[in-house]
Amino acid sequence: MFEYFLVFLGAAIPWLEIALVIPLGIISGLSPVWVILTAFIGNMLTVLVVIVGFQKVKEWMESRNRKKGKAESKRTERGKRIWNKYGMPGVALLGPIVIGTHIAAFIGLLFGANKTNATVWMSISIALWSLVFGIATALGFDLFTRNF
């Protein structure tokens, strides 16, 4: 049970997320179904926190940048390029493998997606990538262990 809590916690932490936690959980011998489900819930809950708390963070960032006279960061510029090309579906679907789910949700909201749209697309993306990472790891690990 403690191992699944670690999967949950790892998936909730930005930069660890599902792309790393799911394969590690499955390779360590945990049930692929429970690892995928636990990681999805852990990642989705913290993404929801980002979506719900977005407005406060945006106001803080804008006031901070106005005071310092700062230009946009390279990450923000990269996010804008992705947004202009693909919109919220693209940012959400590319997020877990390019910039991380938390940053993808934040960028989508920053560039104008509403909270409902961001929540729906991030849910789809996290579910899809959880399945992809889980199934690929389970099948690959099973194939590897059978042949050696």
Results as ranks from 00 to 15, higher is better:
Met1Ile: 00
Glu3Pro: 13
Tyr4Met: 07
Ala11Ser: 15
Ala11Cys: 12
Pro14Ile: 00
Trp15Ala: 14
Leu16Trp: 04
Glu17Trp: 00
Glu17Lys: 05
Gly25Thr: 00
Ile27Tyr: 01
Ser28Ile: 02
Ser28Phe: 07
Trp34Pro: 08
Trp34Val: 13
Ile36Gly: 05
Phe40Met: 07
Ile41Pro: 07
Leu48Lys: 08
Leu48Asn: 09
Val49Arg: 09
Gly53Arg: 10
Lys56Val: 06
Lys56Pro: 14
Lys58His: 14
Trp60Gly: 12
Met61Leu: 15
Met61Gln: 14
Glu62Trp: 08
Ser63Leu: 15
Arg66Tyr: 11
Gly69Arg: 07
Lys70Leu: 14
Arg78Leu: 13
Lys85Asp: 04
Tyr86Glu: 02
Gly87Val: 06
Pro89Ala: 04
Pro89Asn: 03
Ala92Pro: 04
Gly95Asn: 01
Pro96Val: 03
His102Val: 02
Phe106His: 00
Phe106Trp: 10
Ile107Gly: 00
Leu110Thr: 01
Ala113Asn: 05
Lys115Cys: 06
Lys115Thr: 02
Thr116Lys: 15
Val120Ser: 10
Met122Gln: 03
Ser123Trp: 11
Ile126Met: 02
Ile126Cys: 02
Ala127Trp: 04
Trp129Met: 03
Ser130Pro: 13
Phe133Lys: 01
Ala136Glu: 07
Gly140Val: 13
Phe141His: 12
Leu143Gly: 12
Thr145Gly: 02
Arg146Phe: 12
Phe148Ile: 15
